[in-house]
């Protein structure tokens, strides 16, 4: 579903991703973990199509298409969803209107009939239950004055409404207390299916207690330096990232010695 090969991305001329490889198949849950500054958010933003990132090399294929050539709205319609680390507040735009516009934009692209006001209301009510969100959030402005947890619930609500093929969760656990974390995770779990893939980008592994990954990758210095199963995430939680950094250094040293 998603094939990232040797991806190199710079921000303001500084190389952040330095040859990243990642392969995600339908139905899989991948966790990308790494310390601050490793390039986690850059990866999420590049996949969603944010401006300001210069692609210096490599490629991203999504369902056989060149993802990087598509504008953000096209990626969304094709089934790529980014849950923002910091969801944006949009004063003056009602959440209901926003959600309906998004749902219908995506449905239209997929050749489905657009939902009218009543149909949409029914649909959104049902999905709000999933993330235990009060209906009053429909009439409020998008994310405006929402608490951290409410914003993340609103993200997962959008995820469940847009029914993407590939969902990228960028630090979805940040700023959540344990109850909110459980609600958000169960909302995501409810959407897991054999034709849907999840890319969970996170600093900590606590979200992974609920969203159990099939594969865990360590992102360090702009590259995936280690991959493993669920147990790698647990190990990272216990031992931190230092030992991997040391391991990488040792490998490099070894490689250099060999070259000599």
């Amino acid at each position: 579903m998603l094939d990232i090969q040797n991806l190199q991305v710079a921000v303001d001329g500084k190389l952040i991703l330095k040859g990243l490889d990642l392969h995600v198949r339908a139905g899989e849950v991948h966790a990308v973990m790494g310390p601050n500054g490793a390039g986690k958010s850059t990866l999420a933003n590049v996949l969603a199509g944010r401006e300001g990132y210069q692609i210096k090399g490599g490629s991203v294929q999504y369902q056989g298409k060149d993802l990087l050539a598509l504008p953000p709205e096209q990626r969304a319609r094709e089934g790529v969803f980014l849950s923002f680390q910091y969801p944006v507040e949009i004063p003056g735009v009602s959440n209901a209107y926003f959600l309906k516009a998004a749902v219908n934009a995506v449905r239209k692209h997929r050749g489905m009939a657009e939902l009218d006001a009543m149909e949409f209301l029914q649909f959104v009510r049902e999905r709000m239950k999933l993330v235990e969100m009060d209906e009053k959030f429909l009439s409020r402005s998008v994310n405006e004055g929402f608490s951290g947890g409410e914003k993340k619930r609103n993200e997962i609500l959008q995820l469940s409404l847009l029914e993407p093929k590939l969902a990228v969760l960028d630090e979805t656990d940040s700023g959540l207390d344990i109850d909110a974390l459980r609600v958000v995770a169960s909302g995501v779990n409810a959407l897991r299916s054999p034709d849907r893939a999840l890319l969970v980008i996170t600093h900590y592994q606590r979200l992974l207690d609920y969203l159990v990954p099939d594969h865990t990758h360590v992102l360090l210095g702009g590259r995936i330096v280690k991959s493993g199963g669920r147990e790698l995430a647990v190990e990272l939680e216990q031992r931190g990232y230092k030992w991997i950094e040391d391991e990488v250094k040792a490998q490099k040293k070894g490689a250099r010695a060999e070259a000599r």
Partner: peptide
Amino acid sequence: DADALFYLRTRGID
């Protein structure tokens, strides 16, 4: 707001 614009676009809105 460029962030708001991007946010809307990532939800399929042109």
